[in-house]
């Protein structure tokens, strides 16, 4: 039996794999097995999913309103300058508008990227470090933006 198998291999000249030495199969990423850890028993994913829907609805109003005011109405983009921003941020309404937009857009985008990373990063380490990078960038941007909105001084320079 075994001589027959090897004889065929010799003739073809490429007997890399045979019955006793099969080629490695291509396993899909992160296969589910009996040892797959059971759930974490928190509602985090549900809140994240709900947040995406609700913040999305609010952002449609906030962002479209923002674009309309900044780029279309009253002279368009050419009117934007230090004085324009200072004038707007003198009113608490526009401060709150921009603050809400900053927080919702940053968290909405960060959560979207988090799901993309969860979906596509195959190795645990890659996934962890990409998410750490994402969270750091998000926290930095949100805090810096909040700081600027609240401590903005129109009489600077």
């Amino acid at each position: 039996m075994s001589t027959e198998t090897s004889a065929i291999g010799d003739v073809e000249g490429s007997a890399l794999y045979d019955v006793d030495n099969p080629a490695p199969v291509i396993e899909p990423p992160r296969k589910r097995t009996g040892k797959t850890p059971k759930g974490s028993r928190t509602n985090f994913e549900m809140y994240a999913w709900l947040f995406m829907r609700l913040s999305g609805i609010v952002l449609v109003v906030l962002v479209l309103g923002h674009l309309l005011i900044q780029l279309v109405l009253d002279g368009g983009v050419s009117k934007i300058g230090f004085a324009f921003v200072a004038g707007r941020w003198a009113s608490p309404f526009w401060q709150m508008w921009d603050l809400a937009m900053l927080w919702l857009a940053m968290l909405h985008g960060a959560n979207g990227l988090r799901t993309v990373i969860n979906d596509y990063a195959e190795r645990d380490n890659t996934r962890f470090w990409l998410k750490m990078l994402l969270y750091t960038a998000t926290v930095f941007t949100v805090l810096l933006g909040t700081l600027v909105i609240f401590t903005f001084d129109p009489n600077i320079r």
């Binding site: 059971k38 759930g39 974490s40 028993r41 509602n43 994913e45 549900m46 994240a48 999913w49 799901t115 969860n118 979906d119």
Partner: peptide, 12 residues
């Protein structure tokens, strides 16, 4: 429902 509320459950 608790099982499917997990990270790998219906929310994906």
């Amino acid at each position: 429902l608790e099982i499917l509320n997990d990270r790998d459950g219906v929310w994906r």
